[in-house]
């Protein structure tokens, strides 16, 4: 039986982890490779790096981080942030990323999804959608880290990128992100019921029950979280045990 995936996500800036990491046995909490190794050992099912480096000149630092992580962690690695073109994707994949997540560029030029999936295969193309509730049952996509409104309906866009060849959707609720009040399960449900590809829930996790709801109510194929794992509030293993008790199939 296919297991629900638990995915810790690291924000990386200039090659360093920016959100605080609080593991007792970690020597350098800012080193993404060290953090990745800890998650690898603790049984995370996948890892996600989100690069928030503003300057283009510092991009090679990220590529070096990806390369070193892939040399030491034998688990799936998704990398996103600032991906604008086929050549950006090519460089990340050849550095050791298994999947590349595309956000703003997918909205600006949906054809990039078609082009990229034809070249590299759907399995490595993740479309990251950041959505905000604007009226009843209507979620709108925002780009540029949530600053720019697009007028595009999130559910419609998810269907569109699926037909263009996306392999997965990483769905973040901007309303919920950082609130620790749980995922936007209505948004998750609206998208996961309409697309044939896996949907990763993101934004708002505060406790284990939120992850369970994202799967049970939202229909997510995978659950992503950052701070609850990084701060050591909840371990990956405890999360999996609780999800398993709730009847969700996980890899123990």
């Amino acid at each position: 039986m296919l297991k629900t995936r638990i995915i810790p996500c690291l924000d990386v800036k200039d090659g360093r982890v920016v959100k605080g990491i609080n593991f007792v046995d970690l020597i350098d909490a800012g080193d993404p490779i060290e953090v990745a190794k800890i998650y690898d050992r603790s049984g995370a099912d996948e890892l996600c790096f989100l690069d928030i480096t503003a300057s283009h000149e510092k991009r090679p630092i990220l590529l070096d981080v990806v390369r070193k992580t892939a040399e030491q962690c034998f688990m799936p690695l998704t990398v996103g942030g600032g991906v604008r073109s086929v050549s950006d994707i090519q460089v990340l994949l050849s550095s050791g990323a298994d999947k590349v997540s595309i956000n703003t560029a997918a909205v600006d030029d949906p054809n990039l999804i078609h082009e990229a999936s034809s070249i590299f295969g759907s399995q490595c193309i993740v479309v990251a959608i950041d959505a905000k509730l604007v009226s009843e049952n209507n979620w709108e996509i925002f780009t540029h880290g949530g600053r720019t409104s697009t007028g595009i309906n999130a559910v419609e866009f998810a269907k569109k990128v699926t037909s263009l060849g996306a392999g997965e959707i990483l769905l973040t609720s901007m309303d919920k992100d950082g609130t620790k009040s749980g995922y936007d399960n209505e948004l998750l449900k609206a998208v996961s019921e309409e697309v044939s590809i896996p949907v990763i829930a993101s934004g708002g996790v505060g406790k284990i029950g939120d992850l369970i709801d994202g799967v049970r109510i939202g229909g997510a194929s995978a659950v992503l979280a950052a701070s609850i794992f990084h701060f050591g509030e909840i371990s990956i293993q405890d999360t999996k045990l609780a999800m398993s008790k709730a009847g969700i199939s996980v890899r123990l």
């Binding site: 629900t4 759907s122 590809i197 194929s221 995978a222």
Partner: peptide, 11 residues
């Protein structure tokens, strides 16, 4: 309800 690609950990 099962998504394709079959993506993730399976036994």
């Amino acid at each position: 309800k099962l998504k394709v690609p079959h993506m993730g950990w399976n036994n």
